[in-house]
Design a protein around this nucleic acid. Structure first.
Length: 592
DNA sequence: GTAGGGTTAG
C-alpha cells in the first residue's frame, strides 16, 4: 500500500472486490478510512460511507472543490445562492485556506443583505481565521449583533491557532461576563492557545478546574488538549495523572501521551507506551509513529529506530511526509547520515520541511561538538556523565568534552557555569568553544561575557568578521549604540572583510543580520557545504522556494569557492524575505 | 429538511 492515492485505491478496489483483505491488512489509518468508505459505498450503505469519507484527510479537498465548482457555476448563471449554500461555501474556503474566494463570497453576502445572519457570520469568522486573516475575523466578529457559543468559540479558536493565545484568553474572559456559557469546544480552543509562560502559570490549572466543574473532564478532546498543554510546559506529572485517570484511552489520547513523553525527553516511557499500545492491538496511527521515532532519535537508539522503520514499511506509511521527516531526524541524530539520505532519496513527494530536515542532518553530522548528551539537551545528564567519566573511569576529559560541557551550560542560559569551565580547563580553549559561548551570550543578552568572548576570538580568528558582528548585535540589543559604532570601526581598522566562506551579513534598516550555515551548527567541512549547495539548487528548481538563511550561506560558500551560480534558478524563486533576496541578487549580479 | 466551532506528529 505504498503511497497509493485514493483514486488508485478506488480503481483497484472496484476491480478486485478484495475489500476485506485491504481493510484487515492495512493499518495505515488514512488508507483504511478510504478503503472502508469504498466498502460501505459498494454495499449500498452510502450514508455511513459519507460520514467516514468526511473523516478522511483528503475529503475536504475533493468534496470542497467539487462543491465550490458547482457553487461558482451557479453564480455564473446568476442564480442567487441560499444562506445554506453560502455557509457551506465559506466552510470549504476555510478548509482550503482560500481567503481570496472567501472574501468574494463575503462581498456577495453584504450585497444580498445576509450580513446579520448568525450562522453566516460564524462561518465568516472561521473562514478568515483559518486562512490567517485574524484581523478580518475580528472585524466580522465585532460587527455582529448577537454572539452565541459557536461564534465566540470560532473567534477564540481563531486567535489560538494564529498564535495569539493571550488575546484568546482575553476574549474568553469577556465571554464569561456574558450569558453565553462556554462548552467543550470553547475550552479546547482556549486551552490549546495557552502556550506562553505567563498564560500557562496563570490560566492552565484554572481552566482545568473549570472543565472539571462543568463536567467536561471525560471529554476526550479536552483531555488530550490538557495532556498536550501540561506536557509542553514541562508539567509531565500532571499529564501522566490525567492520562492514567482517564477511563477510555483512545488512540488520540495515547498519541498525545506518547508525544508528551517524547517532548519531555522521556524517550523510554514514550517507547514503552508505544510498545504497550502495539501489543494491545490499538491501531497505530502515523502520529504515534512520528512521536516514537522522535523519541528514538533523542535516545539515540538506532536499533529500536530501525524496528519502527520496519513497522512503518509494513504499515505502508513510508510515503507520509511527517513520518519521513521523523525518520530522517532519527537516523541523523543516531549518526547514520547514509540511511537518512537513503530515506530522503526514496521519497516521492519532497516538501520544504523534508529538504530542511535533510540539510540539518548534514549539518548535525558535521558538528565539531557531537555527543549524545548534547543532542538530547539534558544538562544534568551531561554533567553527570562528565563527572562520572572523571571519577569512575579516571579518564582525563579531552578538549571536545570540555567544549560539550560549555555548550551544555551556555545553551541552557547558565553562562556563569560555562564561563567557569574555561578557567578550570587544563588546556587553552579553542575558537569553536568561544564561538559557541559567544552565540549563547548573544541569545541571553550578556554584554560582559560577550565582550570577553569576542575579544578572545579577535585574537584566535583574526580574519573572521563573525565575532565583530555578533558583538555589535549584543551591544545593539543592549542599546549601546556608541559601542556598536566602535566595533565597526575596530573591524575596519583591523582590515576584516565583511564576507568569508560560510558567513555573511546584511544590513537592513541599520540592523546587522548575520547568516550562516553555522546557525545550524559549527560546520567546518567543505564536503558538507557542497552537499548543501547541491540540495539548495535542486530544491530551488523544484519548489521555487527556500529558507533564505541557508540559501545565502550556501551561495556565499559557492561564490567563495568559485562555483558558477545558477542565476536563473535564483531569480525564479519568489522568496518570502524579499529584502534578503534583493540584497543577494544585487550582490551576486555585481560579482558575476 | 438543509448551516457555523474542537484534539495528537516531522
Amino acid at each position: 500500500m505504498h503511497g497509493l492515492s485514493v483514486y488508485q485505491i478506488k480503481a483497484m478496489l472496484y476491480g478486485s472486490r478484495s475489500l476485506n483483505y485491504l481493510t484487515t491488512y492495512t493499518r495505515d489509518s488514512q488508507v483504511r478510512t478510504t478503503a472502508l468508505f469504498i466498502l460501505r459505498l459498494s454495499r449500498g450503505i452510502s450514508l455511513s460511507a459519507h460520514k467516514l469519507f468526511d473523516k478522511s484527510p483528503q475529503s475536504h479537498v475533493t468534496n470542497g472543490y467539487q462543491f465550490l465548482a458547482s457553487f461558482l457555476q451557479q453564480n455564473r448563471l446568476n442564480k442567487k445562492p441560499t444562506k445554506f449554500q453560502l455557509c457551506t461555501a465559506l466552510n470549504c474556503c476555510a478548509k482550503t485556506h482560500n481567503s481570496l474566494l472567501g472574501s468574494q463570497i463575503h462581498t456577495k453576502i453584504l450585497n444580498t443583505g445576509l450580513d446579520q445572519n448568525l450562522y453566516i457570520n460564524s462561518s465568516l469568522v472561521n473562514m478568515y481565521a483559518k486562512s490567517g486573516a485574524i484581523l478580518d475575523a475580528m472585524r466580522v466578529f465585532n460587527g455582529m449583533e448577537f454572539h452565541d457559543q459557536v461564534s465566540w468559540t470560532s473567534i477564540i479558536c481563531g486567535l489560538s491557532q494564529n498564535g495569539q493565545g493571550k488575546e484568546a484568553i482575553c476574549l474568553f474572559k469577556q465571554m464569561l461576563k456574558t450569558q453565553i456559557i462556554p462548552n467543550s469546544f470553547t475550552y479546547v480552543s482556549v486551552i490549546s492557545g495557552c502556550t506562553d509562560q505567563e498564560s500557562v502559570s496563570k490560566c492552565s490549572e484554572l481552566l482545568h478546574g473549570h472543565v472539571i466543574k462543568l463536567g467536561h473532564e471525560n471529554n476526550k478532546y479536552i483531555t488530550s488538549t490538557l495532556i498536550d498543554n501540561y506536557s509542553k510546559c514541562g508539567k509531565i506529572d500532571k499529564a501522566v495523572t490525567l492520562f492514567e485517570g482517564s477511563i477510555t484511552k483512545d488512540d488520540i489520547l495515547l498519541n498525545s501521551m506518547i508525544s508528551a513523553y517524547s517532548h519531555n525527553l522521556l524517550g523510554e516511557d514514550s517507547l514503552k507506551l508505544f510498545i504497550k499500545m502495539h501489543k494491545a492491538n490499538v491501531s497505530l496511527s502515523q502520529h504515534a509513529l512520528t512521536s516514537v521515532l522522535d523519541a528514538c532519535g533523542a535516545l539515540t537508539v538506532l536499533q529500536q529506530g530501525k524496528q519502527i522503520h520496519a513497522l512503518v514499511t509494513k504499515m505502508g506509511s513510508d510515503q507520509n511526509t511527517f513520518i519521513i521527516g521523523a525518520l530522517i531526524n532519527m537516523y541523523s541524530k543516531c549518526g547514520n547520515i547514509n540511511e537518512a539520505s537513503h530515506v530522503f532519496n526514496q521519497t516521492v513527494h519532497k516538501n520544504n520541511i523534508l529538504w530542511t530536515s535533510m540539510m540539518t542532518s548534514y549539518a548535525q553530522n558535521s558538528k565539531v561538538v557531537l555527543t549524545a548528551c548534547n543532542h538530547s539537551g539534558l544538562l544534568e545528564k551531561g554533567v553527570y556523565y562528565f563527572e562520572k567519566m572523571r571519577s569512575d573511569y579516571n579518564l582525563a576529559p579531552e578538549i571536545d568534552q570540555y567544549a560539550c560541557l560549555i555548550d551544555l551550560y551556555a545553551r541552557k542560559g547558565d553562562l556563569e557555569s560555562a564561563r567557569k569551565v574555561f578557567d578550570e580547563m587544563p588546556v587553552d580553549a579553542n575558537a569553536v568553544m568561544w564561538s559557541s559561548f559567544l552565540s549563547c551570550c548573544k541569545e541571553y543578552g550578556n554584554v560582559e561575557y560577550g565582550r570577553e568572548a569576542a575579544y578572545k576570538l579577535f585574537e584566535l580568528e583574526p580574519d573572521s568578521p563573525v565575532p565583530y558582528l555578533i558583538l555589535g548585535d549584543i551591544y545593539g540589543g543592549a542599546g549601546l549604540w556608541n559601542e556598536v559604532r566602535n566595533v565597526r570601526k575596530l573591524m575596519e581598522e583591523n582590515g576584516v572583510r565583511k564576507c568569508t566562506a560560510g558567513w555573511s551579513w546584511v544590513e537592513v534598516d541599520n540592523e546587522v543580520h548575520v547568516f550562516s550555515v553555522g546557525d545550524l551548527c559549527h560546520v567546518r567541512s567543505d564536503e558538507i557545504y557542497l552537499e548543501l549547495y547541491k540540495l539548495s539548487l535542486e530544491m530551488l528548481s523544484e519548489f521555487k522556494t527556500f529558507r533564505p538563511v541557508i540559501l545565502r550561506a550556501c551561495f556565499n560558500w559557492a561564490k567563495a569557492e568559485g562555483c558558477i551560480l545558477d542565476m536563473a534558478a535564483l531569480k525564479a524563486s519568489p522568496c518570502k524575505l524579499a529584502h534578503v533576496w534583493r540584497l543577494s541578487l544585487t550582490e551576486f549580479s555585481s560579482d558575476n
